[in-house]
């Protein structure tokens, strides 16, 4: 037993240094912009660049709108499927997993051809249309995460009883969904939203191929032009990812009811895909 403990200690130490050294090194690198001294000059330079804030806020807004769209689609659908058509649930679930199964570049390739200049619905020729395309693309990418957390959240609710209680008080279908089911799912939705946000704010492929002024393409541009700012941006991105994941965990744990599937949304094996 003693030996296995020493071995595991060694493994854990190696793993910890593999994880922590790049983080520390990146941070130290980001402080070296001015020769011979430590400074936050690289960070100052990042924040002084108007494109930094404009692309970051563009990406934040598109991600949030995408999360909103996919919530508005997923919540009523999940509710309806659970209440009325439990038999089609595997089909719906498989469709929501498709964005993880098919590489994102293939999906955006399909968009560009299907909604390109010579199609019936040429969304990609105008700026407004391309913005819409990007938002829809992010909504599609977020489907697996949003569906998973909403479905997990709904599992802890007795939606049939809630529905019948609301109906007996005279509520109609949309009142039930928006004033009874949705508020009960708030924590689950917010938790899924943070996970989605953490992977979409730096998304590159969709934004770049749709030619949108988003944060991902901006990062690539800075990576080509500058030396120290990329390290500062990596530190900031890591902090943002960390914040999103912590908030996601907090909300995932805030669900009402005890029979929650632990870590369902957070650590579902498929519940991630890098922004690649």
């Amino acid at each position: 037993m003693k030996i296995s403990r020493i071995v595991s200690l060694v493994i854990v130490l190696i793993a910890a240094s593999y994880f922590l050294v790049p983080l520390y090194a990146t941070f130290q690198f980001s402080l070296q912009m001015l020769r011979g001294q430590w400074s936050f000059q690289a960070y100052r330079s990042v924040f002084a660049d108007p494109n930094f804030l404009s692309t970051l806020s563009y990406s934040a807004v598109t991600s949030l709108v995408a999360i909103l769209i996919s919530t508005l689609i997923v919540v009523p659908t999940t509710y309806w499927v659970r209440l009325k058509m439990p038999r089609v649930k595997p089909v719906v679930e498989f469709i929501t997993l498709l964005p993880l199964i098919i590489p994102p570049i293939v999906i955006v390739f399909g968009y560009l051809r299907l909604y390109g200049s010579d199609s019936l619905l040429p969304l990609t020729v105008s700026s407004a249309g391309t913005n819409l395309m990007l938002v829809i693309g992010y909504a599609t990418l977020s489907l697996p995460y949003v569906f998973r957390s909403v479905d997990n959240g709904m599992q802890t609710l007795d939606i049939r009883t809630l529905t019948e209680a609301a109906e007996s008080l005279g509520a109609n279908r949309s009142t039930i969904i928006f004033r009874v089911i949705l508020p009960n799912l708030r924590a689950a939705i917010v938790s899924g939203a943070f996970l989605t946000f953490s992977i979409s704010f730096g998304e590159f492929v969709f934004a770049s191929l749709l030619n949108r002024p988003a944060f991902g393409p901006y990062l690539v541009q800075i990576g080509q032009d500058r030396a120290y700012e990329p390290a500062a941006l990596a530190v900031l991105s890591f902090a943002l990812t960390w914040a999103c994941m912590v908030l996601m965990q907090i909300f995932a744990n805030a669900k009402p009811g005890a029979s929650r599937r632990r870590r369902g949304a957070a650590f579902n094996p498929l519940a991630r895909r890098k922004t690649a």
């Binding site: 790049p22 983080l23 090194a25 990146t26 996970l195 953490s198 992977i199 730096g202 998304e203 590159f204 991902g216 990062l219 690539v220 990576g223 990329p230 390290a231 941006l233 990596a234 991105s237 890591f238 990812t241 999103c244 994941m245 991630r272 890098k274 922004t275 690649a276």
Partner: peptide
């Protein structure tokens, strides 16, 4: 979830 461009920079 820390992948993509920032990971390359790091």
């Amino acid at each position: 979830n820390f992948a993509g461009i920032p990971l390359a920079f790091a």
